[in-house]
Design a protein around this nucleic acid. Sequence first.
DNA 1: GTTTAACCCTGCACGC
DNA 2: TGCGTGCAGGGTTAAA
Length: 280
Amino acid sequence: MELPEVEVMRRDLEKEVVGKKVRDVEVRPHRNAMRVIRRHSRRKEFADRLSGRKFTKIDRKGKYLLLYLDGGDVLVVHFGMSGQLLRGTKRQTLPQHTHVVIDFQQGGDLRFIDPRTFGEMFVTAVDQLGKIRELDHIAIDPLEDTFTWQEFSGELARRATKLKPLLMDQKFVSGVGNIYSDEVLFAAGLRYDRMSDSLSSQEVRRLYRAMREVLQDAVRFRGTTLDDDAYVDVFGKSGDFAAELKVYGRKGLACRRCRTPIDTVKISGRTSYFCPQCQS
DNA sequence: GTTTAACCCTGCACGC
DNA sequence: TGCGTGCAGGGTTAAA
């Protein structure tokens, strides 16, 4: 799950849980539930910090969700690759790999489901957030107004590294992962292995514009739901951006712009999809 | 400073 | 049918 999916989740939760009070919290008994709340040593400690609290605000920092509570704590959620937050009711049986259930006083609950347990949840005091290294080093959000192309240009030139891994580096820009980095590079007409300090100012502008447009469009389409890993929103609904993807997952298929077959390459441990004709 | 690989985990596709 | 193998992915970390 990358920026657009987390942002859709944030907007949904803003409507769905802000103002609601937590009645109680269940951390499920299996071992992987403890993996999900790995920063806490016991289930009860995690549950007690949420119980009786009311959600006041939902923020996003890169791919992290921050659910603020009255009383000065914040629930931090990271989805890894297979994490989900789903609204439910007592009557609905818990899906497999449900690790945490947050029950609301007003009725209904919120479940955290994560088969691969790369995701996590933890509660911390708001004034301790700065001490969480993973959060602290997160770079500027490409959808923020403060993300200007001039600044972006300077950052690109300061590094000397291949574009694909750089776009996915959360210390460079936040929220971009494997899917959207490929889509952004295609939209910008740039190859995955172009060096960041080799771009002309026209290319920098193309990359900047592509980043914003692709991410904004993906939010508008409510995220990417692929066949194999099924991202769904808080209500269990799929996103529609998969049909809009230009290169990701389209190996061997004709490029939508020039009909050349889409190719893949392994770079920094990730599969990258690209059009050999349109990107240079 | 950059780059690579390993690690965590489960589900799924594949070949035999 | 059933097993083993390899791959997928986000992010950190250690090593090259």
